[in-house]
C-alpha cells in the first residue's frame, strides 16, 4: 500500500481518526508516521515462564546447569523436568531447589521474600508467631482506618488468640 504522505510503497501504519464527525483512515510509512509523532511500537508480549527458565543461564546459575538430574526427595521431580514444564511437583520441591528458585523469583517478582499473610501451622516457631502478630496488627490498623469495625473486632479476637499467654 502506498504511503499517503511520501508515495513510497510501504505504508505500514493505518491511523483511524474522527474529524468533524467523519471517520478517516491515514495510511503512512514508518518514517512519515514517526515524523508525525505517532507511537508505532506494538504491545509487548508477556514473557512466558519457560523463557525465564531458559534464561537461567550457565554462567549465573551454574548449580542448575551442573545438576539437571538433581531431584526432589519427596516427589522425584528433577530440575530438568521443572525447567521444561515450569511447574513444581510438591511443596517439598521448594526446599529441594531453594537456591535455584530464589534466583528465579527475583527475576519474576523482583525479590524472594514474602511479606503478606503469615501462616502458622501447629508447630510454628516463636519468631513466626511474632511475624503473624505483626501482620495481624497491620490489618487491624487498616480496618480501623477504613472504619470496617466488624472486621476490626474479628482481627482483635484473632490477635488475642495468637498472643502468648502472659
Amino acid at each position: 500500500m502506498k504511503c499517503e504522505n511520501c508515495d513510497s510503497d510501504n505504508a505500514v501504519i493505518h491511523l483511524t481518526q474522527i474529524v468533524d464527525d467523519e471517520m478517516k483512515t491515514l495510511h503512512l510509512c514508518d518514517r512519515c508516521a514517526a515524523e508525525k509523532g505517532l507511537e508505532t511500537s506494538t504491545v509487548p508480549m508477556n514473557l512466558p515462564l519457560t523463557d525465564f527458565l531458559a534464561n537461567m543461564g550457565p554462567e549465573e546459575r551454574s548449580p542448575a546447569e551442573e545438576m539437571p538430574t538433581r531431584s526432589c526427595s519427596f516427589c522425584a521431580l528433577t530440575l530438568a523436568e521443572f525447567k521444561k514444564a515450569g511447574r513444581l511437583g510438591c511443596p517439598h520441591c521448594w526446599s529441594s531447589f531453594e537456591e535455584q528458585l530464589r534466583g528465579l523469583l527475583r527475576r519474576i517478582h523482583g525479590g524472594s521474600q514474602h511479606v503478606g499473610k503469615v501462616y502458622l501451622s501447629p508447630d510454628s516457631s516463636v519468631s513466626e508467631r511474632e511475624k503473624r502478630l505483626d501482620a495481624l496488627r497491620r490489618k487491624l490498623q487498616r480496618a480501623v482506618e477504613l472504619e470496617e469495625f466488624e472486621r476490626a473486632a474479628n482481627l482483635r479476637d484473632e490477635i488475642r488468640a495468637t498472643e502468648p499467654v502472659a
Binding site: L49, L88, W94, S95, L104, L105, I108, H109, H114, Y119
Partner: peptide
C-alpha cells in the same frame, strides 16, 4: 487444613508465578 507454607517464599504453589500471597 495444613497449608504448605515457607518462611521466605510464603504460600507455596505449583507455578512460581503464583507463590507468596497466591493472590
Amino acid at each position: 487444613l495444613p497449608y504448605a507454607y515457607h518462611h521466605e517464599f510464603g504460600f507455596l504453589t505449583s507455578c512460581p508465578t503464583n507463590v507468596g500471597t497466591g493472590l
